[in-house]
Design a protein around this nucleic acid. Sequence first.
DNA 1: GCCGTTTTCGGCCCGACTGTTTTCAGTCG
Length: 576
Amino acid sequence: MRNFEVASLLLEIADILEIQQENAFRVRAYRKGAQAVEALPEDLASVAARGELLDIPGIGKDLAAKIQECLACGQIAYLEELRRQIPAGVVQLMRIQGLGPRTARLLFDQMGVDSIDKLEALCLAHKLAGLPGIKRKTEENILKGIQVWRSGRERVPIGSALEIADAVVARLKELASVRQIAVAGSLRRRRETVKDIDILAVSEQPAEVMERFVGLHGVAEVVARGETKSSVRLRDIQVDLRVVETESFGAALQYFTGSKQHNIRVREMAQRRGLKVSEYGVFEESSDRRVAGATEAEVYAAVGLPFIPPELREDAGEIEAALDGRLPTLVTEADVRGDLQLHTTWSDGLPSVAELAAAAQARGYAYIAVTDHSKSATIARGMSEERLLQMLADVESVNRTRSGFRVLAGCEVDIQADGELDFPDELLRRLDLVQVSVHSRFKMSRDEMTARIVRAVRHPLVHILGHPTGRLLGERAPYELDLEAVLQAARASGTAVEINASPQRLDLNDVAARRAKELGIPIVISTDAHAVPHLDFMRFGVDVARRAWLTAADVLNTRQEPDLRTWLAAKRSHPA
DNA sequence: GCCGTTTTCGGCCCGACTGTTTTCAGTCG
C-alpha cells in the first residue's frame, strides 16, 4: 500500500470524526498524521519494518497501530466501523465549497442526504430552506458550489495559476495607492497544483483596491466582498485578496503563505515565548504591544527562527532544521548553468541545434545537451542510426561556431519493454550524454515495470533517468512502479535522475526528489523543451527542487562545464 | 490523538466574511 493511500484513509477518518463533532484536536491529529505520511520521502513499509513509525512527528501509538494495520491488510477496522455510521456520500458533501461538517451532519440527520446528487435535487426543489440556519440564499450557494465541484477544476496546475496571479498583480499595481503587493498561499510555496490564488496588498485606500479587484476583466463571480478581504472566481479559479497596513505586511504574508500546519507550529513557538502571532503582527500576550510585523524575517526572528523559504513551509522538518541551523541554501534559477534535455529538428523539436544553442547562450547558459528521441519513438520522429550520426556532425559544426558555450551530443533513448536500450552500445559510446526514458507500454505490472527501468538505470553507458514516473499532471497517472527500488539502483550505479521541469510533468515530484537527495543521487533539472520558449520552464523545475530541499551542490547542471564533463566521463567508469 | 525547557495531564492558532441571526454559528484559510 502506497503512502498516499494510507494518508487518504487517515483523512477519511478525520472527515468522519469531524462530521460526528468529535474533539477537534483529535480530528487535527488524524489530519496531521495523514500529512506526515504523505510527505514522508520513504515507503511507510520500510519505516515500519525498521520499527520507526513512532519517530515520525505527529504519529503516536494509536496512529502507528492503524498504519501497521493498513500495511498488513489494506484497511483499518476502525474506519470500516465509522463508515457504517457516516456513509462516504456524506463525507463527499464537504467537498462542496461553503458546506462544512456541521451542515453535512444536519443534512444527513434531518433529510437523509447522502450524496451530492440528492443534495442538488433537494436544493432545486427548495426542500432545504426551513432547516435551522438554512434559507433561500444558502440553497443558492450550495447549488453554485455543486457547479464548481462538477466543473472538476478544483485544482489548477501551477503554470496557469502563476499566469493568472501575475496578471491580477499587474492590474492592481497600476493603482497609485498600492504600496506593496505579493502573491501568497500555496502558489508562493510553489505547490504543483493550487486550489486558489492568494494575493496580499498594502494600500491606504483599501476600498479603491477592492473596487478594482472585483471589477477585473474575467471575473465570473464575486464570492465575498469586505473592507479588507474579497474573493472572486476568475477563469475557473478562486482569487482572494487581502489588504493590510504596512506594519502588518510581513505578518500577513507569513500568515497567508502558510502552510496551515507550518503556521500552527510557528504560533505554538510564539505562545511559549508569551507572544501571539496573527496576520496583523507579533504581539506580547500580556501587553498587546506589537514586537514585529512589517517583514517576514522580523516575524520569524520574534519567535526565535531564521527566515524560512516559502517552499519549505510544509511542517516537513523545516522548523527543526531552522532551530538547529540546518536549513539548506536552496538552489536558485541563477545557479543553473545549462539544460540537459532538449529536442530539436532531429526528432520532434521545433528549433534547430544552432537556434537552440543561440537561445540558450543568450539566456546565460554555458552548455546544453540536445537529446533527441531514439528510433523506437516513431511518434516523436525518433532518429535512425544514420540520423544520429548526422546529428553528431551537426552538433560538432555548431560547436565550431560558438565560443564560451558547448553543445553536448545526447539522446533520449527509449527503454524497451524488457529494459534493453534502443541503440547498441557502440553508438551510445559516441554520445556525450545518454538519457533513458519510458515512452511506451505504460500499463505493465509494477514488478515488470520496476525490473525494466532498473535494468536500464544499471546500464553502464547511461547517465540520466528521464521523467522517472511518467506522469502527466491531471492527464496520466504515474505508471505502476517501485520508485524506491529504482532510486536504490540509481544510487548503486551512480546514475542521475531528472526533475523534468515541463509544467505538464514535474517528474520527479518534490517528495521523490527529496528522497533522491537523501540517497545521495545526483539530480538534473531539465526542461524537455521542444521549442525555444520552453527553456523558460526551468523555473518550474527549480521550484520542485527547492521544495525538495535541494542545494546547488545536489544538482548536476549547476556545475561548470568542465566539471560536468568530468562527471559524465567518470560515470562510465563507475563499477555497475 | 499527540506531545513535553510550563506539562505524563492538560493543553492544543487566529481572525474575516456570510447568512442567519438580534448576538452568533459555520466556513474558510
